[in-house]
Design a protein around this nucleic acid. Structure first.
Lengths: 366, 366
DNA sequence: ATGAAAGCGCTAACAA
DNA sequence: TTGTTAGCGCTTTCAT
């Protein structure tokens, strides 16, 4: 640790009481219950404290006694710094921070990178509860959180019954996209999705892999897409679905490229996130494909960059999501059965989706 | 608090020891020093723990005993959510998070909005040290932090001798901008700066207000600009300096507008941040002023949006700043005198600065 | 308005 | 390898 202005904790509440010739209770009251002692005595206590360099009651000792840490823990599946790069996560974080601020609670980011299996950081965190943001079902850190005897609110995933939860209806939300595309006439599509399991797999995802995905959000979105397209006679097992581990525009670009290689005749690329869609957009441009004339591209999330780019996407209320998660955790009321908050989403019809041109048009012009 | 999976803390280390008929030490060792007891005993302990629903040693009690909280506190002058909107702060945060992650420490965001004078959150935070990011000298939360007997690292401001510090040389950095403009021939400029004190003042800032600013960063930048321009015969008291409380592009736009009203003949708007400069850019466009032909605009910070816009600015290493602050705090070594880390900055000559056209040209074309 | 007593749950010497 | 002994520093009934 870096050096400090003040030396090592010099005085304790007890030593201060001794110095003053009063009981510890009185000193404690001077800090926590000003109305419990005369103003003069209180002033004497505080003055002596200053003189002795007593910094006030030790927060950890107080926490032990009161069984309140005054902070909320946040568990993310990604490296901490991911949260500061992903626009969606950022909105969520902001909302959560607002909720904590309102309740005068600290927000502790738990170091839990997916690489390290070391779960100690979860065990050592002095927090009154956890918000778990979008982690896979089999995440060991999640297991560690669930062992702690404190409240937990899950955001997005995993879906655990008997656990408070906040998130959108992923299936229904992306179905709106599917139906939008189907309505435009798309029948031959490719899908670009985020990682489906903790292990890296940059490439096609079989129907089985889709169904076994340990990320509920992706699983639900893919399942809903499948349903929607099968309903109009498209066999889902024939639809190329390409998975990317890293959630970056570059991943989105390479996924789109791979889809176009697998089936050059797709008329739309459906992405399960805006980041992937933004990358797909870039790839399309690089290939000289016009969007939406030659290729429709859709996203999911409604991040600012996407809306700026005019992407057809689904907007979810990020800030509200974080705030709701925080409130749920911080709300004493209704200690009954698990509460689920389902957030509304909205289909944004942008400029990146249109009716497909027939193949003839595609090759020989309109 | 929301409901929890597990009931209220059901068992303690002591009760577990009793149940097992072993001492508390043994149970403690089972968790903290596996090598201190036989594998069989350890297994028996852990199994019984599971059966009894013992969640492992209580982190707060452990912290009290070991005098380590396992977390770093972060104090920002703004609402917590500001940190998630300002690109510079975000880069800093990411770097700090990385440093914490490396050291397996939590990062606790302290709720300390500038409105509320309530300092309790600082006193109650169970952390091993604080990083203070860019707060005014007279911030009460800062005072509270300094009272705590833990190490503190200050980032950017305030400048406190005898305190660890990380930041750029603001004066020297902005001087590069000034000299760049002076070299191009600018002598009549306006300055747009961030808030100079805790109280709101959206408008001109007198020389005295500049000198008394409680934000060292702004004070240093303005002073350096003054020096540079006075060195070429420009009287600084005649240079319009406009202050904005909110750090947003909208503020930057209105500040630029105000500068152009105060002196329509300025040939350059020097902004002490990129956010303000981005707003100035917008305002210039709205007025039909071409940049840089009719008006030069410069920023400070080197945020991604600014570099994308081709702004002439000073780039500072945000990520490194956060990481350095974290490392400094987390580094036991060298408990000697305060350490100061001065970060290198770089003048980015963009497309928003050029030689001024004479006034004739300005009104009647080249 | 003030004090005495009883822990909160744990870890770290030291001893056996 | 395991147990004994002492607290870490504080708050909180319950008396006075």
């Amino acid at each position: 640790m870096a050096r400090s202005t003040n030396a090592r904790r010099p005085a304790t509440l007890a030593s201060l009481a001794a110095e003053l010739g009063v009981s510890r209770t009185t000193v404690s009251n001077a800090y926590n219950r000003p109305d419990q002692l005369s103003p003069e005595l209180r002033k004497r206590v505080l003055d002596t404290a200053r003189r002795l360099g007593y910094p006030g009651p030790d927060p950890v000792a107080r926490s032990l006694r009161t069984r309140k840490a005054g902070a909320v823990g946040l568990l993310l599946t990604e490296n901490l710094s991911y949260a500061f790069r992903d626009p969606g996560a950022l909105g969520f974080l902001e909302g959560l921070a607002l909720a904590c601020e309102d309740a005068a609670q600290g927000l502790t980011l738990i170091p839990a990178s997916p690489e390290q299996e070391d779960v100690a950081s979860v065990h050592r965190a002095g927090v009154d509860g956890f918000v778990v943001y979008s982690v896979p079902e089999d995440d060991p850190h999640l297991a560690a959180v669930l062992e702690r005897p404190v409240p937990v609110v899950v955001c997005d995933q995993p879906r655990l019954d008997n656990m408070d939860w906040v998130g959108p209806d992923d299936g229904r939300s992306i179905k709106a996209v599917a139906e939008h595309l189907i309505g435009l006439g798309h029948r031959r599509i490719g899908v670009s999705c985020m990682r489906l399991a903790r292990g890296r797999n940059d490439g096609p995802a079989s129907v089985q892999r889709q169904a076994n995905a340990s990320f509920h959000v992706q699983r639900a979105r893919l399942a809903a897409l499948g349903e929607a397209f099968e309903a109009v006679g498209v066999e889902w097992s024939g639809v190329p679905v390409v998975e990317r581990f890293d959630h970056t525009p570059a991943s989105g670009a390479s996924a789109a490229a791979q889809l176009l290689e697998i089936d050059p005749e797709i008329t739309a690329v459906v992405c399960t996130s805006d980041i992937l869609a933004l990358g797909a957009l870039t790839e399309a441009h690089n290939r000289g494909l016009r969007v939406p004339e030659d290729l429709s591209i859709t996203g999911f999330d409604g991040i600012p960059d996407a809306e700026r780019a005019g992407l057809t996407t689904v907007r979810q209320p990020w800030l509200e999501k974080g705030r709701a998660a925080g409130r749920l955790l911080l709300d004493n009321a209704e200690p009954g059965r698990p509460r689920h908050i389902q957030l509304e989403t909205q289909l944004i019809t942008g400029a990146t989706s249109a009716a497909p041109r027939s193949m003839e048009e595609r090759w020989f012009g309109p």
